[in-house]
Design a protein around this nucleic acid. Sequence first.
DNA 1: GCCGTTTTCGGCCCGACTGTTTTCAGTCG
Length: 578
Amino acid sequence: MDREQVAAILAEIGTLLELKGENAFRTNAYHNAARVIANLSEDLAQVVREGRLADIPGIGSTLRDKITTLVSTGRLPYLEELRAEIPAGLVQMLRIPGLGPKKVKALYDQLHIDTLDKLQQACEAGEVARLRGFGAKTQTKILEGIAFLTQIGNRVRLDQAIVLAHGLVEGLRGLPGIKRLEVCGSIRRRRETVKDIDLLVSADDAGPIMERFVTLPGVVQVTGRGPTKSSVVVQKVFSSGVQITMNADLRVVSDEQFPFALHYFTGSKEHGIAMRLRAIKHGLKLNEYELAGEGRHIACKDEADIFHALGLQYIPPELREDTGEMEAAEKGTLPRLIRGDDIQGVFHNHTVYSDGANTIEEMALAAQALGHSYIGIGDHSQSLTVANGLTPERVLQQHKEIDRLNKKYKDFRIFKGTECDILEDGRLDYDDELLATFDYVVASVHSHFNQSREEMTRRIIRAIRHPRVTMLGHATGRLLLRRDGYAVDLDAVLQTAAETGKLIEINADPHRLDLDWIHCRRARSLGVQLVINPDAHSTAGLSNYLFGVDVARRGWLEKQHVFNTRSAAEVAKFFQAR
DNA sequence: GCCGTTTTCGGCCCGACTGTTTTCAGTCG
């Protein structure tokens, strides 16, 4: 049983215990442990083997034993007892906005409600409103919540959330009285998926800003309205026809409070808790309005001042997950994170030769417009017929065109690449002779996703070990919120990459973002070089490389950890040496 | 359930908003 599975089970235990009415600190210990395990940047099985579990902060002797049982046997009797005791429908009911463990337990204990269907019937019959602590409004909100459940409260891809957030920002910007305006929350931390939109404004008078906010275009429901905080539901239909529905919160504070509120609402929650604990150790109190102690009030003009006042380096939002950033900031050893303008060019891009929308020349010109000094073309290989993969003859034709364009554009370099399929058994889709004609080879899995973990791992490692392979494309094949990655021992893949000096791609397509940030940190610690590729299928898609930079930053990567921060000459030299 | 240069017991981050109350519990982030 791997890291994610163990984390999911610990979180499930925490939730089941909440529904039992357990002590909140005990349930929180499980949720905290789930997070710690999910964010572990080393191999869980190895930590268990070496008896180091209890060294991890948040894991004590009880959780050590339970995790050890899970990892070694794949089962946990304690969980099975809890599942037998708590109906699964109660967990579903928790997803309704406004319903927490206490209310769900009350519904179960008093009305024997243990499914969403029964809950809906009881609301419609007016039984829920008669319970102590409930009322007519709560009953109505529950019915609305059930109706909205399929659309609201689900996570949304970062690129889509950004569009909705910017719509709200544009609607507010320019209102008189707004001093500072910022998108906070997981969008600011650049998580790959986002649950809701958090906006923060500083102004002397919140009234008119709140009024505008709840009537902005796209707002379909107002779910909260107070003097400093309002909540709405926003909806947008994308040109693809996809309709996205999200919650959005706006907080309005004074300009003096803005830095504290910005830090607070950027989160993560766990990072915020760690910061408040640190403030307490300094004899201070930190909340969303101030950093203060007895008789003193520490003025901060921006977030950096807050960190410095607590003896810390400035921690960029992407690192605020309580996964070691506090300790590093105290020691002054935070990474100098890679930036978007460090990227000099990208590989793994498609053209009209396979399934792209633009020509090689159009892609090259678009890359130049982004300030890049080179581009790599990596169209699909022959067996991927659905994507118009290139036959050997068409490869040679494409190479001639690239040679011609390289003569035409003197200060820009086009590299000849391929996104070559990794076949079922780990062989490559072109013979060695043809592979030798490319400057570089991206090897990717596009078929037989259902292989066993062992087969898939063996298959990918065999491909990485092929001398002509330069980098591994989209390491797990996941599609965010749609398809899990295939089963593969990523740690073994990363170790092979480290051993053979091969590159691992951070696929910057916002549908994929694969490798994820946790494995980026793992790759970094193993000394593996990463490469950020947009997997562009059009000129517009090229700029997606910035989403990959976000992942790299969340993965603590610096410029030197990412291959395509190198110049065209350095890249050419690397390719020739392989 | 975790944790400890005050503690092996008794703490454990903090505030806004809602709905139900008549002073507050529950939920949320």
